[in-house]
């Protein structure tokens, strides 16, 4: 690892100031992704600003939402009684990610900031428009088994690796940020972005904007939820495809539904067409199958990942079956 300076800050303002005045400085929280990227030479900040002393660990019930501090740790959030009771989908998604040790280190804010695990991004000897804009996408005609089937640009077909974020986009969460120009609330759907002409930008944060919390509005998804993660081994692997499904059922009628997929796009991939189709319908495998087919509009394989074109809709059906109890 290259040399870097290290400082600790204890207020949000000091954290923001430290990043604004030093263009090569970077925040560090859990470090589970950043330290790895620095060892690989993919990222090389001149200075690390340690934000772990900021008072952003609290999980608290608001009048109509659940507020989770950006520095709350993934493992403890997944096990938290309030989270399990109010937002079980989030708990399931967190449990599906990484390993117990990593979940004890990784923060909620850091989880959504993690970089893609695309092997071309991870290897500085390979072309990658995300790591080094203009060098091309090695995955497009390369080994792209893990890669996206939905994208707005072939400059980058990497996928966002977070499980937690798939649940948060399904739950209509809001990201609270604090920056040099003040505070701002970003709908989770708008937090991550598609690659477009700037695959180097994973999200819509401005320089100096720090995530302080995630706010999840109250909902009726406390019972019929499922997070299905399909991967190369049963545990501790990134998703080939994952599906977050939440249903509000009245008998066998679907009153409300949320669906999102991981492992298929540069951002957590919400499925609005399928949701609209399912609302008011009677739950059945045939209906789930139709919803899944609707979700695949615009999907495209790049060779090694062609299997996802079948795996994704099948996974949607399985997740909906599990969530609705129609196993």
């Amino acid at each position: 690892m290259i040399h870097f300076d290290y400082i600790r800050v204890s207020t949000t303002k000091a954290a923001v100031d430290a990043i604004v005045k030093d263009s090569k400085a970077q925040w560090i929280a859990g470090g589970t992704n950043l330290v790895d990227l620095m060892k690989k030479g993919v990222m090389a900040p001149d200075k690390l600003v340690d934000i772990n002393n900021l008072a952003l660990k609290e999980i608290k019930k608001q009048s109509s939402s659940l507020l989770i501090g950006a520095l709350a740790l993934n493992g403890p959030v997944a096990d938290n009684e309030l989270v399990r009771k109010e937002q079980p989908l989030l708990s399931l998604a967190l449990q599906a990610g990484a390993s117990a040790q990593l979940r004890n280190m990784a923060t909620v804010g850091g989880n959504m900031m993690q970089r893609t695990r695309c092997p071309y991004f991870y290897n500085p000897d390979m072309p990658c428009n995300k790591r080094e804009p203009g060098t091309g996408c090695g995955a497009l005609k390369g080994f792209n088994r893990m890669h996206a089937i939905f994208t707005d640009s072939e400059k980058c077909i990497a996928v966002h690796p977070s499980d937690m974020s798939i649940a948060l986009v399904a739950l209509d969460a809001t990201v609270l940020v604090s920056g040099p120009k003040g505070d701002r609330r970003i709908p989770f759907q708008n937090f991550h972005r598609l690659p477009g002409d700037m695959p180097q930008k994973d999200n819509t944060l401005e320089r100096g904007e720090l995530i302080v919390a995630v706010d999840i509005p109250d909902n009726k998804f406390s019972k019929n939820v499922h997070y299905l993660k399909v991967r190369d081994r049963t545990s501790y692997a990134f998703a080939l495809v994952s599906v977050a499904a939440a249903l509000d059922m009245q008998g066998s009628t679907i009153k409300d539904v949320r669906l999102a997929m991981g492992g298929v796009a540069h951002k957590p991939w919400r499925l609005p067409e399928a949701e609209n189709f399912l609302k008011g319908k009677t739950a059945s495998e045939a209906v789930f199958r139709q919803a899944a087919e609707l979700s695949m509009k615009g999907a495209k394989g790049y060779g090694y990942n062609n299997f996802k074109l079948r795996l994704a809709p099948t996974s949607i059906v399985e997740a909906l079956k599990a969530a609705s109890g129609k196993k």
Partner: peptide, 8 residues
């Protein structure tokens, strides 16, 4: 429990 290889 944490991973000491990723802990500065």
């Amino acid at each position: 429990r944490v991973l000491s290889c990723l802990t500065l």
